[in-house]
Amino acid sequence: MAKVTAVNISETKGVVKETIEKGYFQLNHGLEGDAHAGSWHRQVSLLAQESIDKMIKSGAEGLTPGKFAENITTEGIVLYDLPIGTKLKIGETEMEVTQIGKECHKGCAIRELVGDCVMPREGIFAKVLVPGWVKAGDEITVIS
């Protein structure tokens, strides 16, 4: 079963995010209070714990959910294999995959902290189609 392992938030772009108990994902906006939220195609970022584990195995230390600035840390689903347009039910929400990976911006605090960033290769982005709450332990289902 694919599930959420953490919900993470930050008020500033390009920094690690803090894990919160649950987050409210607004329609066509993203995680309420997060710096990346807004009316654009990268409202929500997702990264698998399995991707974080790859970085740990390569020697990076101290990696926990949110260190790659992802809003939702997942487990049990290969996110970067999902085609753009895939619809996911995550907790109370529904989201649509809009982008796979991204370029890191210059001066990325994550790359400086851990020496590499897996987000450009294995992270994905989505927009919120149905608003609602998401918390650790919530199931993730591919709708279409």
Rank of each mutant, 00 (worst) to 15 (best):
S51C: 07
A69W: 02
E94Q: 14
A69S: 13
M119Y: 06
F25D: 00
R42K: 15
T74S: 12
G30V: 08
G91W: 07
I84L: 00
M1H: 07
L31W: 09
Q43T: 03
A2W: 01
S39T: 09
Q99S: 09
D53H: 01
G14V: 08
A35H: 05
E122N: 07
L129V: 10
V4E: 07
M55A: 15
L129F: 03
I84D: 06
F125C: 03
D116C: 03
M55Q: 13
E112I: 09
A6F: 08
G101K: 11
G66E: 10
E92N: 06
E32M: 12
K89N: 11
R111H: 12
K13R: 14
D34T: 12
T74N: 05
E61I: 10
K22L: 04
C108A: 07
A136Y: 09
C117N: 03
E32D: 15
E61M: 06
E92I: 06
E122I: 00
G101W: 04
E21K: 15
E92D: 15
Y24P: 10
A126Q: 03
K54G: 02
H105I: 04
T86Y: 11
K17H: 12
G66F: 10
T86W: 11
A109R: 08
Q49T: 14
T86I: 04
T19I: 13
N28I: 04
T19E: 15
L113V: 01
P120W: 02
N8E: 12
T64N: 11
E139P: 04
T12R: 15
R42T: 12
I143Q: 07
S51W: 05
P120D: 04
T86Q: 13
S10E: 04
I100T: 04
W133A: 00
N71Q: 13
G107M: 08
K102N: 02
A109G: 09
A109W: 06
V118N: 06
D138H: 05
M1P: 05
K87S: 04
I84E: 12
E94H: 09
H29N: 14
V15W: 00
E103M: 01
L47W: 03
E103S: 11
L82A: 05
G33K: 11
G85H: 00
D81S: 14
V4T: 06
I72Y: 02
V78W: 04
R121D: 11
V114D: 08
G137I: 04
V4C: 08
E70L: 05
V78K: 10
G66M: 13
V118R: 09
A6G: 13
I9Y: 12
L129Y: 05
H29A: 10
I77M: 10
H29Q: 14
L27Y: 15
N71C: 11
I77R: 05
T19D: 06
G66A: 08
E21H: 07
D81C: 09
E50T: 00
L129G: 03
S51Q: 05
W133H: 13
Q99Y: 01
Q26C: 12
T141R: 13
A48V: 00
K54I: 13
T93N: 06
V78S: 10
G101C: 07
S144H: 11
P120G: 03
M55K: 07
C104K: 01
I110W: 00
A37T: 01
K127Y: 09
G123C: 10
